[in-house]
Each structure stands twice: as C-alpha cells, then as structure tokens.
C-alpha cells in the first residue's frame, strides 16, 4: 500500500461519514497479513480468529489516536502482537502455569489440530522454533514465515537492523542444530 493511499485511508477512518466504508477496506487489505502474524504466535486457528477480531476492533476504536509516527501497518502489527502476547499471558495465568509450560501444551495440542498438517518435519520445526529464546523466536518467525524485511521488522520491534540480523542468524543455527539432533 502506497503512503498516499494510506494517508487517504487514515483520513477516511477518522471522519465519521466515511469511517465504516474505510474500515471495511482496511480489513480487506490487512486481514490475511495480520492473521498469519497472529497465527505464528498463537498457533491455534480458533485463538487466532478471536485475537484477529479484537485487533481490528482495537484499531477501529483507537484510529483517532494514531499519530502517524509510523506506517499504518506497523502500528496494526504492534497492536496484533500485543493482543497475542496478552492473550497468552492471560491463558497461562488462568491455567496457573508458566508461559514455557503453556508453549509446551500448545505444541502438544498441535499434533491433533485439524488445522495443522500433521507432518513430522513440520511438527519438528515448530518444536525447534518453540525452543528458541523469545526474541530470536519472534525474529525467526517474522523473517522465515512472513518474509518481512529487516527495515520493517526494525520499525515494528524497535530494534536495530544489525541486531535483528544477528538474532536471525543465531536462531537459524539453533533450529538447524535442533533438527539435526532430533
């Protein structure tokens, strides 16, 4: 989406008259990208669907507060990421388990998930990714699955590009080692 189109869309979203139509347009443009962004964090389709809905509603409610300091999609990605992390933290708290234990539980559920290809290699890959430290896991998913550019990633995670490259390098090595060992 070009910057000019983005500015126009934001203007429409902020006007009471065009808000509804502009919002439908926004959902059309970003639903798939945001879905995958959330899905890689949460892994379950049902949870992703819930969080995606919440993300869009939050965007709708807070669009007036968007100051234009970053690109619109970066701002939306940030909301999606925060919503996903909050969702996981709340679930862990409700189940009275740690986040690591929750990750393990999610991976175990993945084997019987109808919306996951029960492929041994893919399951192994997910396990390898889950074994990574939080930051490396995030960078690996953004780069490997979402093919996000380092520049965009830097804006989203507020980290320098060189640090992100280093994170990705280390993550890749660890995933490779995990797959070789197991």
């Amino acid at each position: 989406m070009e910057i000019q189109d983005e500015i126009e869309l934001i203007k429409q979203l902020c006007s009471e008259k065009h808000k509804h139509i502009a919002f439908s347009k926004l959902v059309e443009i970003f639903k798939e990208k945001l879905y995958w962004h959330i899905r890689y964090i949460l892994k379950s389709h049902e949870d992703t669907d819930d969080v995606l809905q919440n993300t869009f509603i939050k965007v709708y409610k807070n669009i007036d507060d968007f100051k234009g300091d970053s690109r619109l999609y970066t701002w939306m990605y940030r909301i999606a990421r925060n919503e996903s992390i909050t969702f996981l933290n709340n679930r862990a708290k409700r189940l009275k388990i740690t986040n690591e234990e929750l990750q393990e539980q999610v991976l175990n559920n993945l084997e019987s998930d109808v919306y996951f290809e029960a492929d041994e290699i893919k399951l192994k890959l997910q396990k390898a990714i889950s074994s990574l430290p939080e930051k490396q896991r995030e960078v690996f998913q953004l780069r490997y699955f979402e093919e996000m550019k380092y520049q965009e990633m830097s804006e989203l995670l507020q980290t320098s590009e060189s640090a992100l490259k280093s994170n990705y390098h280390h993550a890749s090595k660890k995933v490779e080692e995990y797959l070789k060992k197991n």
């Binding site: 808000k19 509804h20 919002f23 959902v27 639903k31 798939e32 879905y35 995958w36 899905r39 890689y40 892994k43 389709h45 669907d49 995606l52 809905q53 869009f56 509603i57 709708y60 409610k61 109808v114 919306y115 996951f116 290809e117 492929d119 893919k122 399951l123 890959l125 997910q126 990714i129 699955f145």
Partner: peptide, 26 residues
C-alpha cells in the same frame, strides 16, 4: 494463490475463511 502452506509451517486455514472474514465495528 493465497498463502503457500508449505511456507506456512504446516498451519492451515479453514476453507474460505478469509473470504467470509468480517469484523463488525462496535
């Protein structure tokens, strides 16, 4: 033409999920 499942790490989406996906603004 949508997301390639081989690159999605095995995650699948219900059929026509994105086509029917709507958000009702509050």
């Amino acid at each position: 033409i949508g997301h390639d499942n081989s690159q999605s790490g095995g995650f699948k989406v219900p059929e026509s999920y994105f086509e029917s996906f709507t958000v009702t603004p509050p």
